[in-house]
Simulated assay, not measured.
Amino acid sequence: MLELNPDIPKDPEKVSRIMASATKIFAEHGYLQAKTADIAKAAEVSKGIVFRYFGDKGHLYLATVTYVIEMLTERADFTVWTDAKDLGDMIERAVRYKIQLQLEYPAEFRLSIQSFGEMNVLPEDIRPAMSDLWQKQTTTSLATLEEPVLDRMKLRPGVDKAVLKKLLNAIGTTVFTEAEGFMKQHPDAKIEDFEPIINEIRAEYEILEHGFEAE
C-alpha cells in the first residue's frame, strides 16, 4: 500500500480501519463529495491521525485506490484466464469470475473502476501517480492474463494484436458497466442472475473471433 509518510510510526489496526472506511465512503460518494471527517469517524480515529498518516485527502484517495487494487490482485485467481483453452472460453470464465468478485467486494470494485474516471477531478499533484498506477495495472494485466491466451491463438495474417487488445478491452469495459448497473437495480442478485449478460458477452466475442459474414 502507498504510504505518503513512511517514516511516521503507524498503528496497523488504525491503518486497516482507515482503508476500510475510505474504501466504502470514496466508493459511495466519489472523490469530490467524500469527506475526510466522515472517513475518520467511521474508522474511529481522529481526523488528525488521517492527515498525519496520509497527508491530505488526495493522497488518502491515492493510497486507498492503491490498497484496493493490491487487495483485489492478491485475492484473484489468475488461472481463470491463463488456463482457458481459447478466447471465448477465457472471456466467459473471466466475466463470470469478475462478476462473482464484484458481488463479493462491491465497494472495492466500484472504487477501482470509478478512480479511473475521476482522474480529471483529482488534485494536479495526484494525477501523475494515479495515471502511473493504472498504466502499470493495465500493462501487468495484459501481460499476465490476455497474452498467454492470445499467444496460443492463430491470428489471421494482417491482424494487429494491439488493435485486437483494444477491442477486447472496449467490450470488457462495456459489459462490466452493464453488470454494475444491474447490481444497483438488483442489490441481492447472485451470479446466476447474470447469465443473460454472460451469454451476451460470449456471443459478442464469438462474433469478434469468427466474424459475421457467411462464407
Rank of each mutant, 00 (worst) to 15 (best):
residue 44 E to G: 13
residue 46 S to Y: 07
residue 48 G to P: 07
residue 49 I to D: 11
residue 51 F to Q: 05
residue 52 R to M: 14
residue 55 G to N: 10
residue 58 G to M: 09
residue 60 L to Y: 00
residue 60 L to A: 01
residue 61 Y to K: 01
residue 61 Y to V: 00
residue 62 L to H: 04
residue 66 T to W: 09
residue 67 Y to A: 03
residue 68 V to F: 00
residue 69 I to R: 07
residue 71 M to W: 07
residue 72 L to M: 09
residue 73 T to M: 10
residue 73 T to E: 11
residue 75 R to M: 04
residue 77 D to F: 06
residue 82 T to W: 09
residue 82 T to K: 10
residue 85 K to G: 06
residue 86 D to H: 07
residue 86 D to K: 05
residue 87 L to K: 03
residue 88 G to D: 03
residue 88 G to M: 02
residue 88 G to V: 00
residue 92 E to Y: 03
residue 95 V to E: 03
residue 95 V to N: 02
residue 97 Y to E: 10
residue 97 Y to P: 11
residue 100 Q to M: 12
residue 101 L to C: 12
residue 106 P to G: 05
residue 108 E to G: 05
residue 110 R to Q: 15
residue 111 L to W: 08
residue 114 Q to K: 11
residue 115 S to P: 01
residue 116 F to G: 12
residue 119 M to H: 14
residue 125 D to V: 06
residue 125 D to F: 06
residue 125 D to I: 01
residue 126 I to S: 01
residue 127 R to D: 10
residue 131 S to F: 12
residue 132 D to L: 09
residue 133 L to P: 00
residue 134 W to C: 00
residue 135 Q to C: 08
residue 138 T to S: 11
residue 139 T to A: 12
residue 140 T to W: 08
residue 140 T to N: 11
residue 141 S to G: 10
residue 141 S to K: 07
residue 144 T to R: 13
residue 145 L to P: 11
residue 146 E to S: 15
residue 152 R to D: 09
residue 156 R to M: 10
residue 160 D to C: 00
